[in-house]
Amino acid sequence: MPSRRRTLLKVIILGDSGVGKTSLMNQYVNKKFSNQYKATIGADFLTKEVQFEDRLFTLQIWDTAGQERFQSLGVAFYRGADCCVLVYDVNSMKSFENLNNWREEFLIQANPSDPENFPFVVIGNKIDIDGGNSRVVSEKKARAWCASKGNIPYYETSAKEGINVEEAFQCIAKNALKSGEEEELYLPDTIDVGNSNQQRATGCEC
């Protein structure tokens, strides 16, 4: 049996409220979409099995609430993440401008061993709206920002139409996997997060 570290990958989805984080996750995991907005409270948690290069992994996806009052909650959720997905709405400049805050907040709270190379993936969502006519953030602008932050992979999606969602998560899984392997070598003390299944006998710190 392969080591846990390689089978379980923790992914955090961040971004302003309403940009479509929950919708992306639901499209990816359940192939469903709803027009109704149901604000996420705290964080929701889903898992999905993915195959990558002939091996099976479990993606553990943390869909966090974008509402302002949850932003102090970071540590509880961010720690031990293998990949962080930053989502904005291509029809909202503010949600794009906030990506920087989300990224920095994540790096502070999660405190990864190698912040320069921590794997992020950026998603510009809701490209379907109005046939793209109400779009205010250009792809060029988004890509420029991604490039300036250490070449973050960038995807444009529609959670509603299911456009590019699968591709984006494939990339997320790939990057999470990479980070997982690296962290196993460099940072043994983060290993206990995310695998209490195996640790129950020794008890949990709570």
């Binding site: 929701d44 869909d63 959720f77």
Partner: peptide, 12 residues
């Protein structure tokens, strides 16, 4: 809060 029904959640 509808969001609790869709998956397991953790909230303050």
């Amino acid at each position: 809060s509808e969001s609790f029904r869709t998956s397991e959640s953790f909230s303050p």
